[in-house]
Design a protein around this nucleic acid. Structure first.
Lengths: 242, 242
DNA sequence: CGGCGCCTTGAAAAGAATCAAGTCTCGTGG
DNA sequence: CCACGAGACTTGATTCTTTTCAAGGCGCCG
C-alpha cells in the first residue's frame, strides 16, 4: 500500500545525497507508515510533544509560530523531501506549528525509535544532525532577508527561492512551478503586510519579471528576479533524505 | 593548563543538562585544547571549512552574515556554553562568520573526531543534534521578532533576552548584567537602523524600564520590559553542554 | 442567490531610514 | 601635558517606505 523507500520517487533528484542499500533498508524499517493530511489540517502543533516524525513525500505545507498578539510568523515552507518534527523528537516539543496547505502524503516514523537510530546507525544519526543544521541554515538566510532587505527584495527573494527549490524537485515546466500558497503566507514569512506584498507582486508582474497566479509561478526573467532578490544564482544545498 | 571538563565552571548552572561521569570523561577526551581569541578577532569565517569546533567557555561574541550589498545581519550572540562551528562540522562549511566581541576562551574539538563521536557515543551524538535543534529554535524566535514586532518591541526583546540568558549564567548582580556589545550589533540583529535603535534605547531609559550603558544592562522593571518584548517571562531552554 | 475567502487598489497615517551634526571617552604622539 | 583622531553614542530634521484603513471585485460552493 505504502511507498517502499527503495522506490521513493524523491531519491532520483540531485538535491539529495545518495544512499547505500543498507541505509535504504534501515530507513525503510524505521518508516512505520504513511499519513495523508487534508488541506488546511494541522499536522503538528506548537508546544505539542508528538510521538511521530515525518518526511514530506507529496504536497506542500508551512511552518509557523503564533505570537502573543495573534500575529503569525511563517518560519518555513515545506516541500517534498523536507523532514518535519525533529524538534519534538530531540527537544521534547515543537517550537512551531506545521500545517498542510495542499493535500500532503507524509512518511511516518516513531519517535520512540529515534533513540535506536542513534545507537544502531550512526550514519543516519549524522544525517539527522545534518538536516537539523540545514534547517538552521535556511532560517539564517530567511532572517537575513527579513532583517536587511526592502519590500521588493523580500518578495523577489521568496519567489526566487520557491522557483529554485521547486525546480530542484523536478516541478519546473517551461519556467513555471506550482505555488499553492496564499499571498498572506508570503507576507507573514517576510514580515510584510498583505497589502504591500500584493502591490509588490503587481510590480514584478507589470515589470515582466515573474507572474504568480492560479497557484503557479511563472518566472519570465530568472536573472532579473535573482538580481532583485540580491541572490546570485541560488542553488539549493545538497542534503540527506530520510 | 586548560580546564578539565570535570571542573567546568559552566556545569553548575541549571541551564545545562547534567552529565554522567562517563559522558564527562568522554567529552574531556574529545576536547583537544583551548583557544583564546582577542576582541574583534574572527573565529570562523563564512564559507570556510574549519577543522575545529568550539564551545565558548568565557567571553562573548556574535554570529553574522554579510550580504552582497555589504549589509550585515547578526544571526546570534554567543555567550558561555554556546557551541560554535557545528555547521562546518556536518555540512562542510560555515554559513555565517563568528567574531569575538570581548576576549574569549573556547574549548577546542577536532572535526575529524566528530564522526568517531557519532559511532562511539550515541548519547553525545544525540546531544549534538539537540544543540542544532536548539539553535534552530533560537533562530525561529529571532525571525518572529524581526518579522513581526515594531522597533520598540524589537529592542525590548533583545534586552530582555540578554537579561534572561545572562541571568541563567549567573551573571546577574542586582538586576545588572554585563553587556559588552555595541548598539550597532543589536541594530544589525533586529533589522533596525543604528539611529532608530539608539532613540528606542533612550526611550526605554527615560521610561525607567532598562538602562544600557558602560557595557552593562540594568533592568529596573523586568515585568515591563518583558511586556514590551511581548514575551511573558522567557525562560532559557535547558540544553546539553558539550 | 448569498456568503466567504482571496486578491486588488486608492488614500491617509505612521514608523523607520537617512542625512547631518555634535558630544564624549580614550589612547597616541608631539 | 595637551592636541588630535578614532570609535561609539546622541539628537534633530527630513524623507520615504510600509502600514493601516476602506472598498470593491472575482470565483466558488452550499
Amino acid at each position: 500500500m505504502t511507498t517502499d523507500c527503495r522506490n521513493c520517487p524523491l531519491r532520483k533528484f540531485d538535491l539529495f545525497e545518495e544512499m547505500s542499500a543498507d541505509e535504504l533498508a534501515f530507513t525503510n524499517r524505521f518508516k512505520t507508515g504513511e499519513f495523508t493530511a487534508q488541506p488546511g489540517t494541522e499536522i503538528l502543533a506548537e508546544g505539542a510533544s508528538s510521538t511521530q516524525l515525518y518526511t514530506a513525500l507529496e504536497g506542500m505545507g508551512l511552518r509557523y509560530k503564533t505570537l502573543e498578539d495573534g500575529r503569525r510568523q511563517v518560519v518555513g515552507f515545506i516541500l517534498p523531501g523536507d523532514f518535519v518534527g525533529l524538534q519534538s523528537g530531540v527537544m521534547g516539543e515543537m517550537q512551531h506549528s506545521v500545517e498542510a496547505t495542499t493535500r500532503m502524503v507524509l512518511c511516518v516514523f516513531n519517535r520512540s525509535e529515534l533513540w535506536d537510530l542513534f545507537k544502531s546507525n550512526p550514519r543516519r544519526a549524522f544525517d539527522l544532525t545534518h538536516l537539523a543544521s540545514s534547517e538552521e541554515h535556511a532560517l539564517g538566510e530567511a532572517l537575513a532577508a527579513v532583517g536587511q532587505m526592502d519590500g521588493t527584495a523580500k518578495v523577489a527573494w521568496s519567489l526566487f527561492r520557491f522557483y529554485s527549490r521547486l525546480s530542484a524537485l523536478g516541478m519546473n515546466e517551461h519556467d513555471r512551478v506550482p505555488l499553492p500558497y496564499r499571498q498572506q503566507d508570503v507576507a507573514d514569512a517576510m514580515g510584510l503586510s498583505l497589502v504591500h506584498t500584493n502591490k509588490t507582486l503587481a510590480k514584478l508582474r507589470d515589470a515582466g519579471v515573474a507572474t504568480w497566479a492560479d497557484d503557479a509561478l511563472t518566472v519570465h526573467r530568472p536573472k532579473e528576479l535573482a538580481a532583485l532578490a540580491r541572490s546570485s544564482g541560488y542553488k539549493p544545498r545538497r542534503r540527506p533524505l530520510i
